[in-house]
Design a protein around this nucleic acid. Sequence first.
RNA 1: AGCGGGGUGGGGCAGCCUGGUAGCCCGCCGGGCUCAUAACCCGGAGGUCGGUGGUUCAAAUCCACCCCCCGCUACCA
Length: 559
Amino acid sequence: MRWIVASAWPYINAVPHLGTLIQVLSSDVYARYRRKKGDSVVFVSGSDEHGTPIEIEAIKKGISPKELTDKMHSYVSDLFERFGISYDNYTRTESPTHVKFVQEFYMKVYENGHIFEKETEQLYCPNDKMFLPDRFVIGTCPYCGYEKAHGDQCDRCGRLLNPTDLINPRCAICGAEPELRRTKHWFFDLPKFSDKLKEYIESNEQLPDNARAMSLSMIEDGLKPRSITRDNKWGIPAPFPGAEGKTIYVWMEAVLGYVSAVKEHFERLGKPEEFNEFWKGKDTKSIYFIGKDNIPFHTLIFPALLMASEEGYILPYNVASTEFLLFEGEKFSKRERIGIWLDEALALLPADYWRFYMIYIRPETKDANFAWDDMVAKINDELNDTLGNLIHRVLSFIKSRYDGVVPEAQLDEESEEMLKEAKEIAKRIEENLERVKLRDALKEFLEMARLGNRFFNSREPWRDIKENRARADSTVVASFNLLRAMACYMHIFMPFSAEKLWRMMGLDGEPAPLSDAFNIVAGVQLREVEPLFHKVSKEELQEKLEEIRERGEVLSARE
RNA sequence: AGCGGGGUGGGGCAGCCUGGUAGCCCGCCGGGCUCAUAACCCGGAGGUCGGUGGUUCAAAUCCACCCCCCGCUACCA
């Protein structure tokens, strides 16, 4: 089976925070799982780097948008690599392949007759010489009198607004008074695809309930045409006749990155023909990891665009959406410094600790909360004590009592029984991964450690070693092979630790594919053994974070 | 306002679709073990499953209404 695994493209006006990491990590866990199952996987994402907020950020910093995103893209790519995200291609929307692909794609859709143009009136800032997105107009709310209402919605009374409703409207960037100007835009005729989309969603059983319900109700309410163009300077030039000076709206452009990134991947490999096999192949499935706010884009607009291109691209097989992550009960906020940013996170703890905890609290059914106390408890009690200690007690037992060599031994019935139980757990891990229940899969994985601890306790090999050597041998071989299987599954969730464990166990290469996880191995000479994890303390972590911020040790702390 | 998600022992969650002894982790109490990172294992206490009404022999699970929390509402990305 071929798989295209993708995560939503992070917008890189700033360093991403932990909330962003959820999608990125989820997709990585899934991609690693598919590879470990032997599937052919292309795992892609990239930096979303066009649009107004980045233009403004660049103006603030006194550099060009390109300079800003060059820097941010390389910084963010490096962060993801350090988090162990196994992208086959982490690209960017400035990539020439992407730019060319987007332009050709939209020309195709245009020629197919799914795009029309329309004149509208929009607020324009004569000072900044740009049209203002609704969000970038500030004024007094006509309903409640709030003076800092945004053009799309009043943050105080919650009413939806048009920017022209505002009393005393001002440009959010410079404060100047904007003026109404006529402008022409190109629209994608989304409503035309309503029936096809409905059919697609209804027949796509693995779509999560929340995605299906939301999408169908939007179709029911009536879809509206979506504008494709913007008057921004920073973006991909719109290719339509008469659209000189216009760019493609970032959203309508970034989603196509899922396609262009795979194309680019195969071009780099020197096998451009495989792109079509992947993206148009009958035996390819695609899965997208996104936040719930992104659902309509992936279940409606993106599939409709793919249909409209009439190129035969496969439609999304699954759109794995999560709820949101809160930070100590509040929303992440850059301005108020609520949250932890990815560079800070890596300065605090090894990537696997974050991978473990983030998947552990993955917001699958409802909004989840990051809490220091909870993170410390999970790391100390589960990652360190339950899992880390099992590994260490087994390996150090082999070190001290067996000179570090796993004995060749016949497994007795109890040992066989334990491994059989471990296989049952492994099966449940895989079932959960198949259903994208990553949190449950991780929790099942911890069950393997509990099983190992229970087994080791009840067998008391430290006693057998003196009185019943054969029984001790069996315990040791069974425990060692449980760890070996665990390393294979751990490799999906915590790749760095799994590889380290594999080496400590005296095994070569990297943790085996899942089909080989339970093949019994003996006679191995262990390498140097040391604890895989250590405990953490909330106070130390928070102090360290303070320090990082005060000293501006990482980019996000200096922003 | 509309739409979506949630309200389960002290904390964090699962179960609800496919009704029938309320499950997991942490914490707490008691015991065991000493190989291991004071780690591990066993047992126990603790819940009228947001409220009210209904369907049913039987409801955390289905239906109706209500209360509370969170998010989204498509030109922020």
